[in-house]
Simulated scan of single mutants.
Amino acid sequence: MTAPEPIGEDLVLLFTALSATTQAEITAAIDRAGFGDLRPSDGFLVQHLHHGPATIGELATKLGITAQGVSKIVIEMERKGYVSRTPAADDQRRREVELTQKGWDAIYATRKARANVNRELRAALGPGAQAFLDQVHQLAESTGALAALTERRLRPQ
C-alpha cells in the first residue's frame, strides 16, 4: 500500500477544497443578491432551461434522475418563483418548465458572483494566472471533465 500524498500535493483534495470555498463564496453573494433560497444543486436543473422550455421527462433524462425526482425539484422551484409550468403547445397533457424573470435574475446574479470570484482567483495567481489556467484546461480536457461541463452532463453529487 502506498502512502497518501501530503495534503499540499494532493490535487484532488486541493481542487475539492478550492471548489468548496469558492462555491461558498458564490452562494453567499447570491444570498446577498436576494436569492438565498436557491441551492447550488438547483443550478443543475436551471442549466437545462436557459436555452428554452423543457418537459419533466426531458429534464429527467438530462439530469439522470427520475421524472418524480425532477417533479419534486420543479414544484419547489415553482413555489419559490424561479420556474413556471405551462401546457405544451402540441399536447395539453404535457407541461413545459421554463424560467421566470426571477429565474433569469438569479442566473445573472450567479454569473456576476462567479465573475467576481474568477477575478479574485486570477489576482491571487498574479502573472502566472494564464499559464495555470492553460494547465487546468489541459487537465479538464484530458480527463473528460471539460466535455462533461460543456455538454451539460455534470450531475448533482
Rank of each mutant, 00 (worst) to 15 (best):
A17N: 10
I107T: 04
R155Q: 15
G64Y: 02
K112T: 05
L18V: 08
E96C: 03
N116I: 09
Q130P: 05
L45H: 03
Q68P: 01
L63W: 02
G36N: 08
S19F: 15
D134H: 10
I7H: 06
R85V: 00
A131D: 13
A24H: 08
G103N: 06
G81N: 00
H137R: 13
S19H: 14
A24V: 04
A140T: 08
I75F: 06
R114F: 08
L13A: 11
A20H: 09
L139F: 13
V83Q: 03
A28T: 12
L18I: 09
A33W: 00
A29T: 09
A67T: 13
A17G: 07
Q92A: 15
D91G: 03
W104A: 04
Q135K: 10
G69M: 03
T100K: 03
E98T: 14
R79H: 12
A28Q: 10
V74D: 00
A67L: 03
G126R: 07
V74K: 02
E25R: 15
V74T: 06
E98A: 15
T66W: 02
K62C: 03
E25K: 15
L154E: 10
T100L: 01
S19Q: 10
G43M: 14
L121T: 04
G52K: 05
S71N: 14
K112R: 08
G64D: 04
G8P: 02
W104N: 03
Q47S: 11
F132V: 15
L146C: 04
E120M: 07
R85K: 12
K102Y: 02
D105Q: 14
E141R: 15
Y82F: 13
T66E: 05
Y108S: 09
L146P: 04
A60S: 11
G64H: 01
L45M: 10
R153E: 14
R152P: 05
E5F: 09
P40M: 09
R119Q: 11
R79A: 13
Q157C: 04
V117S: 13
T22Y: 05
A24Y: 05
T55L: 01
L13K: 08
P53E: 12
Q68N: 12
A129W: 06
G52I: 00
I30Q: 01
R111D: 11
A140I: 00
K112N: 06
D90Y: 06
L18M: 10
A54C: 03
G34F: 08
I26V: 15
K72S: 10
G34S: 07
A115Q: 10
H137S: 12
R122Q: 12
R153S: 07
T150M: 09
L63V: 04
T150S: 09
L11I: 14
D105L: 08
P87R: 09
D91S: 14
F35Y: 12
Q138S: 09
E5Q: 13
V97Y: 01
K62F: 06
A124Y: 03
R114C: 10
T55A: 09
R122Y: 03
S41N: 09
E58N: 04
A115N: 11
T2E: 12
A33V: 05
R155A: 13
P127H: 07
L99C: 02
L18W: 13
P127W: 02
G34C: 07
I65L: 00
N118E: 05
L133N: 13
G36M: 08
G8F: 08
D10M: 06
A17L: 15
R152V: 10
K112P: 01
P4T: 13
S41E: 15
M77C: 07
R152K: 15
A24L: 11
E96Y: 05
L154H: 06
E141C: 02
V12P: 07
V70H: 01
